[in-house]
Each structure stands twice: as C-alpha cells, then as structure tokens.
Write a protein that binds this DNA or RNA. Sequence first.
DNA 1: CTGAAAGCGCTTACAG
DNA 2: CTGAAAGCGCTTACAG
Lengths: 345, 345
Amino acid sequence: MRDVAERAGVSIATVSFVVNNTKRVAPATRERIEAAMAELGFRRNVVARALASRRTHILAVAYPALQHRLGSTAMGFITSAASAASEHDYHLVLWPVDNDGGELSELMREGLVDGIVLMEVLLHDPRVDTLLSARMPFAMIGRTADPTGLAFVDIDFEVTVEKGLDHLQGLGHREIVFVSERPPSEAFRAYGAKVRAEAAFRRSCAERGLEPVIVECAQNAAGGRELAHELIEARPRTTAIMIMNEHAAFGVVSGLARRGVRVPTDLSLLSISTSSDMGATSDPVLSIMRSPGKELGRLGVELVIAQLEGNEPPGSRLLPCELEPGESTAPAPPSPPSPMIMNTS
Amino acid sequence: MRDVAERAGVSIATVSFVVNNTKRVAPATRERIEAAMAELGFRRNVVARALASRRTHILAVAYPALQHRLGSTAMGFITSAASAASEHDYHLVLWPVDNDGGELSELMREGLVDGIVLMEVLLHDPRVDTLLSARMPFAMIGRTADPTGLAFVDIDFEVTVEKGLDHLQGLGHREIVFVSERPPSEAFRAYGAKVRAEAAFRRSCAERGLEPVIVECAQNAAGGRELAHELIEARPRTTAIMIMNEHAAFGVVSGLARRGVRVPTDLSLLSISTSSDMGATSDPVLSIMRSPGKELGRLGVELVIAQLEGNEPPGSRLLPCELEPGESTAPAPPSPPSPMIMNTS
DNA sequence: CTGAAAGCGCTTACAG
DNA sequence: CTGAAAGCGCTTACAG
C-alpha cells in the first residue's frame, strides 16, 4: 500500500480511502491511485485490515461433523453460503466443532471470525448459550425450542408437511405412514427438524381425520429395507409413505420391491426435506419436497452480515420445501372393500 | 496479553514466549504466567499473531464447486482435512474457486492463507501454474500429467484397478466392462482420475488377455439406467461391470433390474473409488473399492504444513482403494456354450 | 479533499 | 532467563 501511495504521490490514508470507498476523494486523485494499484497488482492485506479495523470479514459455519454426517443437502447449503459470503466480501470457514459449546467458545476467543452460522440446531442447544454470552453475532439454520429474538432461517415444516399431505391425499391416499429418522445419539432426539416435522404430521393428520402413524428407522439403506418389511407385516393397508430420512429412502424402495410391493403402483413414496440430487439418484426417481438449501445458506449468511454491518436485519424466515413430483407417487390403488365401507354402502 | 503480563508481573514478550513455547522461560515465571492466563481466560489473538509473524495458520481447500459437485467422497475428504489441520493448530477454509486460476490468484494476494490444498486436479491444471509462480505452498489431491517435484497425494489407480480385476476374475468373470463418467464439461475430459483409471484398465486387461471395453455415462441415475439398457443390447455376454461413477451406479443396478438382469446373480457390479456410505445406500449393498478419502485429506494437509514449517516433507504418495465386498459381486454365471469353447473342447 | 500519526495485539531480533 | 522496542500493513479519528 505504501508502494501504491508513493507511486500515486499521495498518503497511504488516501489509498485506504479509495480501496474501501470510505471517504470522498477527488476524481483525479482516485484515478491516479487506481492506476497505481493496477500497475502494481495491488490487493490489500486482509490480515492487516482485520487487525486495524477489528473486523476479519470471516464467517464460520459450525457443523457438528463428528455427530452428524454432512449429506448432499447440507453440502448444497454450505457451497451456497460460501458464494453468498464471497459476494458480500466475506470468507467462509468450515468449523467441524463439537456439539457442546466448549470448543466453540475457545475458537471464538481467538478472534478469527466476525460471525457464525450454526447448523443442525437442537431444541436446547448449548452452543446458543455460548454464543449469546460471548455476544458473538450468529444465525441459526434451524431453530431452538424458543427462538424469539434470535436470527434464524429454517424450513417451514408445517407448510411442507401440509403440502405433502395435500399431494398424497389428492392422489386418493388415506393410509399414510410418516417415516422419521432414528437419532444417531441421545442429543439428536431433540433435533429441531425431526421434532417439528413429526409434530406437524400429527397435527395435520388430526385435522384431516387421518391416523397419524409415525415410525423411525436408521439413517441408511439397511434401515429403510428393514422398515419396509416391518411395515408390510404390521400395516399392510398403507398406500403411501412420507419419509424424512434421505439415506434410508432407497432402502425403503428396494425393501418393498423385494416383497413384491411396487413403487408407485402399489405404494407411493414422498421424500420430504431432501435434495433433487438425492431424489434423482433413486430409481424410480423420487417425488420429493425439495429442501430450500441454497436459499437457507444465502439467508443465513446475510442474517449474520446484517448484524455485523448494522443494517436493518432481513428478519428470520421460514421457507417451505417445494414439491418436485418424480416417479414415486401415483394415485392410490383401489382399496379392497373394507368392513367400514361395506357397512355404509 | 498485556493484562496477563501485568498480572504475572512480566513483560508481554515473556508471555509470548510461553504461549508459543518458543524460548526458555524459568519454571517459576512460566507457572505464574500460566496461572494468570487461566484466571483471565486468555486466548491469543490469531489475527495479531498472523500480522506479526506473517503466518496466518490458515489453509484453504480450493474446490471448483461450480464445475464439479461435491459428493460424499469429497466431503469425507474435507472433514478429515479439517480435523488434521486443527490438530496441527491450523484452520481450514473452503474456497469455492474457479477452475481457471484467475480467482485463485486474487485470493492468494489477500494474504489470508499460508497454503492451499487443490482438489479435482486436471492433467494440465492452470491453477498449478498460478500457485507455482506465486510461490504459494500447496499440495494436490490428485495430480497433473507430470507431477514431478510437486507435492501430491492421489489414488493409485493402477493397483486399484488391478485388485478390482483380481476380485472379478477370481470370481470367474472374463467379460468385464469399465463404466467411466461422461465429463460434465470439456475441461474435465482431462480430469486426472478418469484418464488414469481408464488407462490402468486398458493396460491390465491387455496383460490378462481380456478385451478392454470402456464406456461412459452421465453422472446420475438416469445415465446409469440408460447405459444398462444399451449394454444389454450391445454386449449381452458381459458378466461384470467395473464402474467409476458414483452417482450412476444406482441407475445401472435398477436399469438392469428393469430388463430382468439381476445383480449379482446374472451380472456383478464393482464400484471403484467410492465411499462406503455410497455403497451402503444401494440395494444390494455395492461391492466397492473404497476411496481412501480420510487418509488423502490428512496427508494433503500434512504435505502443506510440512512445507510451511520447513520439516522434512512426508513425500508424495499414492494410496490404493481397498476392496470392501458387498452384495453386488458374485461368481460368474455358467457361460452358455460359445463357439470358441466348443471348438477347443 | 488530503495527510500525519496513533494504534490494532501480537512476534522477534537485539541487548543485557 | 527477561525486557524494551521496532514493526507487521493496514484503519481511523483528528487536524488542516
């Protein structure tokens, strides 16, 4: 910067003003400085800027990588967050950080980051307390039990489940089972997404006069296969499954196939809160409720940046998943005459 | 740090020496300083350290996110790289960076990172030239056409393909097709992994007296399905497939199933350079050659750090994928009497 | 509209 | 074994 100043015949302060566009500078001066910068290939040192301005322009995504694997949905989130950050002149760091808040607290005090995006938020998340008491700006992807006053973006599970049920009911399904994920650890039993989706399913079924059947299975193909077999035994009249368990969906399809139950002819499958990628990897291509991962990533970053720059914050938001019909949902098969139907006819 | 120095009754220089363990300090003094640090909850400011020491202790993973999607294999790589970095007191930044080197060059001159890990390396990768001419320490995951003198870790495709063919031939297969990935763009035609795996297959088949059939398909289930159908028409005597195309493997299985070809009874499928995760998501669970993603991530980071700390570098390495038998490979079905067999019997 | 100067919180020769 | 001091490359009141 000193070189640039010398070459342009000004002080380094003035150079700083044009680099940051932070003060009026005479057009002629500005031009000379810009020319000098171009000739020297100047780029301001972000470390020095960080120390002087007390802003590193680095944001961290805290992800409990050890406790929760990073699926393709979460991945889409992170890359979109990184682009959003970069558009606003911020960098994004990935922090594989423990769930308990202790590690997070140490990292924060190093002064490397200006703000934090929290993923995989639990209903009572110790990391939130850590961040609050350190007065570290942050945004959650997901939300705690009571997120009042906190910045967050999350999936609108109420609307998502509602739309999903509309789709299935519109196809004539009435025996619908919700497949949730078996928590990989005790902590994840209170994982916000899981709890909220199940609650939404329960409520929406009640309103529709449907029986709210909810089952869990492990987060892999074997778990899905097992579940499929159990379901055929225990609830043979089921005609549709709504599943929120990306990694088990394949297993469900193939488990059904092994027992001669065809998707979607005999049974429809709707995978919610997932990525197109994941749906397209299946055969038949899954009908999905697409998780707004890209939007969540962008908004999460923008919520943090707004706090940092003192702009009016965009406000916390809930985004629904959008229906992306695939090949795994179809009209319900004609139901065999049930006792009830015979009574009323 | 000034507070710590005051409380311990020493100069900030001495505090710095114990924080960094960089100079002999009298045990008594050290103890007093450590006590003061604990009481004050001191953590050194990494930004100030970076500016003073001219080392940020930040490493970047440059990933062409726009051109190549981040699958579960690449993800495992990044999380393991992040842990390795963190063990060595480094941070890891994810840089979704363009393939052409221009963006990389700008980011480097900001002075944020000490070193770079390059992923998805092309045979003639412009980013390598950028890094070399900037004298930026880096390591490649993968390698250019001639990686002499460069730091890299890569999969040993020769050994991997060899082992894979051993497995299949050991099961009696002789009509083996290699399924490669259709490059998403022209640049990726010279993607190191693809080119090397195909070459290894060709060479190894020649040695074994097998016909080296190589086909390509798009990187998704639809591509795999399509390919399965074509294969049944064009090469009905195929009894085994070796595939290096994670996202298409499912499609191949289901495409075969639709035509009544069962895996592995009628046809074996071995997916190479992939993750257990990916294999387990399929049904049948795929037999795979597991990509050493975790080891590559760790080694890549350590190669960069060794350069930075001036240690004897670990040396570039090639790691083979390991066979992880699943349910998708089985003995070759008894071949129908072919003209050749009849002649020789 | 521009500049001189203090300061961000450390590290690191250098001196003692 | 310890300390005083310069300096890392910027930003930012403050003065003019």
